[in-house]
Amino acid sequence: MAFQKGENPHHPLPGSVLTVEPIRDKKAIQRIKKLLRDQPRDLCLFVLGINTAFRANELLSLTVGQVRSLQLSDVLRVKQSKTGKFRSVTVNGAVVKAISQYLTAYPLSDEAFLFQGKRGCLTVPTVSTMVKTWCQHAGLRGKYGSHSLRKTWGYWQRLERGTAIPLLMEAFGHATQQQTLAYLGIQAEEIAQIYELEL
């Protein structure tokens, strides 16, 4: 069934806030990695998503040649789809390992897109479905999709490392700190916690 422009319930309206959640359970992250251990492409996609905060379409734009020789602390530059600006990410050991395992299992040419399916490069809706499925299999309840990967990165940066909101705002390419807080869904949690102090 065809939808008129702006009527498809599976796509948010322009300017609306995406309601998918980050993965807030570290054990669930490990369960997903375990689930994907025999699927090097999917594991690589998941690991890159939660360790770089690139948007799904930016991950899908990566070619094998861009990542094949990456070593720990190398910089991966990707053009942001929304702003047209390049964003540099310093890759960590988890990213290097996931890429290496994937390309060892599936030798691809440097010109090929990194994340291929049977019909060519994966699409963002396909990635969204994959993430939803992984989260369900890991026992998570809630709304998850492709943006959950990048939100997971930001959530744990803020919660565990205490990364400042202005830095996260820059990494996400957001215009305001309020946008970043709303995006991560942290503000409500933090406000609730300030009322736990008993005087």
Rank of each mutant, 00 (worst) to 15 (best):
A2G: 11
F3K: 08
F3Q: 05
E7I: 10
N8Q: 00
N8L: 02
L13F: 01
P14W: 08
S16W: 02
V17W: 08
L18M: 15
T19V: 14
V20S: 14
V20A: 07
V20Q: 11
P22G: 09
R24D: 08
D25T: 00
D25S: 06
A28E: 07
R31G: 01
R37Q: 14
R37S: 15
R37K: 15
D38K: 12
R41Y: 08
C44Y: 02
L48H: 02
L48Y: 01
G49P: 00
N51R: 13
T52H: 09
L60W: 02
S61D: 07
L62G: 04
T63W: 11
Q66A: 05
Q66C: 02
R68K: 13
R68S: 10
L70I: 05
Q71M: 13
Q71I: 10
L72S: 09
S73D: 13
S73L: 12
D74M: 04
R77A: 14
V78S: 00
V78K: 02
K79F: 06
Q80W: 02
K82W: 06
T83W: 13
K85W: 01
K85A: 02
F86Q: 11
V91M: 09
N92M: 03
A94P: 15
A94E: 15
Q101D: 15
T104H: 12
T104I: 15
Y106C: 15
Y106W: 15
S109W: 05
E111P: 09
E111H: 04
F115Q: 00
Q116V: 11
G117S: 08
G120Y: 01
C121K: 02
L122C: 05
V124Q: 14
P125G: 09
M130R: 09
H137P: 12
A138N: 05
L140M: 06
R141M: 13
G142A: 00
Y144Q: 03
T152Y: 03
T152G: 09
W153S: 05
W153F: 10
W153G: 06
Y155Q: 07
Y155R: 06
W156K: 09
R158A: 12
L159T: 14
E160Y: 08
E160L: 11
T163C: 07
L167H: 11
E170M: 07
E170N: 08
E170K: 05
F172Y: 07
Q178K: 12
Q179A: 06
T180F: 00
L181A: 08
Y183H: 09
Y183M: 12
L184P: 13
G185H: 01
I186G: 11
A188K: 12
A188D: 14
E189M: 14
A192S: 04
E196K: 03
E198I: 13
E198R: 11
L199G: 11
